[in-house]
Simulated assay, not measured.
Amino acid sequence: MIVDLPNTTTSQISKTLVKIREEGGAVALGRVLTLVISTNLGHEEEAIEAANDASREHPMRVIVISTSLDGHHEADTARLDAQIRVGGDAGASEVIVLKAYGDTASDEDGLVTGLLLPDAPVVAWWPGDAPEVVSISPLGRIAQRRITDAAAQSDPRGFLNHLSRTYSPGDTDFSWTRLTLWRAQLAAVLDQPPYETITAVEVHGAPDSPSTGLLAAWLQMQLKVPARHELVTPAHGSSGIQGVRLHRASGVIELERTNTNTVTLVQPNQPVHDISLIRRNLRDCLAEELRRLDPDDLFGEVIQHGLAELDAPTVTGSITVPVP
């Protein structure tokens, strides 16, 4: 069910939610958190779809606050349009979409405060442009967890460097979440004999991939060896992390992406293996981040210290990535 509330107020929205609950049952029962999504007008649906999918694992109230890039919309007068989605139109959540125009858009925390679930954690997510310092932004101040996406910024690697300087416990970024499968696979490889010391690490990825630098920083911290961060230009429009090489006495372990969902593992004196390693979508990243509402201490260590200790990336030309 979708209920449109043009030119409304947060008080009217709250009253409508109560009315829907009384007429259709206790739709808010079992909600474990409030997810606040800050996005630009016209760019709401992809984030809402990801939140709806993630809500099947994390029942929640989703509040989407949508404004224009500069906080105004065609010099419009102050106005708040809202839409409430419940039932099949909201997955296992209830979605409140707030489209703010004019001066109304400048009071983000005021718009959402009265709509938060009582006594429930708040997670803020910026799927697009992030505020200058997320932890002290209007929405960041009311949230326990704050999620950004460096890959969505105009300068992904520059944004990560900025985040390393402004990091506050509770901050996280999808460029880190996208590493989960890579980290698990590398850990599995190193958990097999021969148990030799890693002497050097190389991580290469596309120039616009912020995850590549984070993976190199994590490996350098965990293995306590120099990690080389290489920027390559993959063929066929591929992006993201392209591969990892781990050097040890018996030879080099190579984990190389061969297509969108597969990497090839090459080890000395071992058969070559093709391993499924899919590129994670927004739903997967969001669902993982919502599984923990306490600060991610490891991410904090990597973003604050590991990234700073990593040497500047080197440009190594182009590589050819086979496609099926």
Rank of each mutant, 00 (worst) to 15 (best):
S38W: 04
M60G: 01
A50Y: 08
G25Y: 12
K19I: 13
A26L: 10
T39D: 02
E22G: 15
A26E: 11
E49M: 09
K15A: 13
P59I: 14
H73Q: 11
Q83N: 08
T16D: 02
K19W: 14
G24K: 15
V86L: 08
E46T: 14
A26K: 07
A47I: 10
V32A: 10
L69G: 05
Q83H: 00
V62D: 02
R21E: 15
G30P: 13
E49K: 09
I84H: 01
G25Q: 11
S55P: 10
G71Y: 00
M60F: 04
D70M: 01
A82H: 06
L35S: 04
D76N: 10
G42N: 09
L41V: 14
A78N: 08
R56D: 09
R79V: 05
S38V: 04
H58I: 12
S66E: 06
E49N: 10
L17W: 03
E44C: 07
I48G: 03
E44R: 03
E22M: 10
T34W: 05
S68D: 13
E22V: 09
N40T: 13
I20G: 03
A47P: 06
R31Y: 14
A78K: 03
Q83T: 13
V27K: 07
V36K: 00
H58K: 06
A82S: 03
T39W: 01
I20K: 06
L80Y: 02
A47W: 05
L69Y: 05
S38C: 13
D53S: 10
I84V: 11
R56V: 11
G24N: 15
V62S: 01
G30I: 09
V64G: 01
A82V: 07
D81I: 05
G42Y: 07
G24W: 13
A47Q: 09
I84S: 00
D70S: 09
L35D: 08
I84F: 00
V64P: 03
H58N: 08
G71L: 00
A54T: 10
D53A: 14
N52C: 14
G71C: 02
A28T: 15
V27A: 08
H58C: 00
V64S: 00
R21Y: 02
V32Q: 15
A26H: 10
S14L: 14
L41G: 06
E45L: 13
L17A: 04
A50E: 06
A51S: 12
S66L: 04
L80W: 04
H58W: 10
A28S: 14
L33A: 11
R31K: 15
G42V: 07
I48N: 01
G24D: 12
K19S: 15
I48M: 03
I20E: 06
K15V: 11
V18C: 03
D70N: 11
I63H: 01
H73L: 02
